[in-house]
Computed example of a mutant assay.
Amino acid sequence: MASGSKKVIYAALIGNTLIAVSKFVGASVTGSSAMVSEGVHSLVDTGNQGLMLLGLKRASRAADKKHPFGYGMEVYFWSFMVAVLIFALGAGISIYEGLHAISAPEAVKDPIWNYSILSLGIVFEGWAWTVAYKEFKKTIGDTPIWTAIKRSKDPTIFTVLLEDTAAMLGLVIAMVGIFLSQQLNMPILDGVASIAIGCVLALVAVILSIECKALLIGETAIPETIEGIENIINAHPDILNLNELLTMHLGPEDILLTVSVDFKDGISAEMVEQSITDLEKTIKEAHPKVKRIFIEVQSVSDHLAATVGNA
């Protein structure tokens, strides 16, 4: 998944860099506020891809004494920072530019520049969006996209996908705003388009921040993984009862698993140790994302008493 994430990010980085330069050139020629907003949008997205690459690099560091479970959650932190930047810079500057253009509207000059650059932007952004969508599709199968985003544990891919979707919408909005401002001789519509772009970016930023927050504070594995682990444990001949099973993602490809089980009476300590070893091996083979497993041996009554005592 890391290689797939980097592929998506590099594609978005190249596309956004190219189109950011084009948009700022167009804005300087035409004076369009919507084009300025789009340029800022692409520039912010370019910086965001840099932050996500930084997050992937830092997350790959090996565990140490200070962080015994590794640095996988760095990906979630930097993805959250991307959401903050989209809201503060992308949406904030776009809305500011729009309000400024509405208060002092000016006719857009040489609109052919805008149409050409926006069309070029749609090509670049469309290519980056296609790369992100194909990578995301590999992981979700037939699951609806919105459901898959809510369930995904790799924010790098769905962040780029949402960014590129917002970029495509922004390009369309900018083109419509410039066209209407020309056809209706209402320069104010260029500013309205800029505000609309800012609203789109703000919405995407809120969605991303909600998803990244859930991952940052500790999110469980997907239901299919939990069910699969439960089936493995319940099928073990020496286990009388599965008392509790808890999972948490420490990174997109790193799941922490803690289990409390009650073994049948009369089993020797050596048999319990071997059963635990076999369980860990079977679980990790069936679910490679499970990197760390802690199995607690406890009777059902003792587990219930401890649970009530901690409630």
Rank of each mutant, 00 (worst) to 15 (best):
K150T: 09
T165V: 14
W78H: 04
V131C: 11
I276D: 03
V297A: 11
L89G: 09
A59W: 00
G15I: 01
M175W: 12
V192H: 00
G4P: 09
V44T: 07
I188K: 14
A2H: 07
Y133F: 14
F158L: 03
Y133P: 02
A12W: 02
L208E: 01
P252F: 03
F87C: 09
A88K: 10
E230T: 02
F87R: 03
F179I: 05
D262P: 07
G90M: 02
L245Y: 08
P252M: 10
V200A: 08
L18D: 02
D64Q: 04
A91F: 01
T258H: 09
D110T: 11
G55V: 07
L118V: 15
F24Y: 10
T30I: 00
M271R: 15
D302H: 09
S268W: 12
D45S: 12
Q183I: 09
S32L: 06
I210Q: 10
A167I: 07
V131A: 06
Y71V: 00
G198W: 09
I226A: 07
A104G: 07
A62S: 15
V8D: 05
V290M: 00
S3G: 13
D190Q: 10
I295E: 08
M168G: 07
L18S: 04
L118S: 06
P252A: 12
E227N: 13
K281W: 11
I233G: 02
F87E: 00
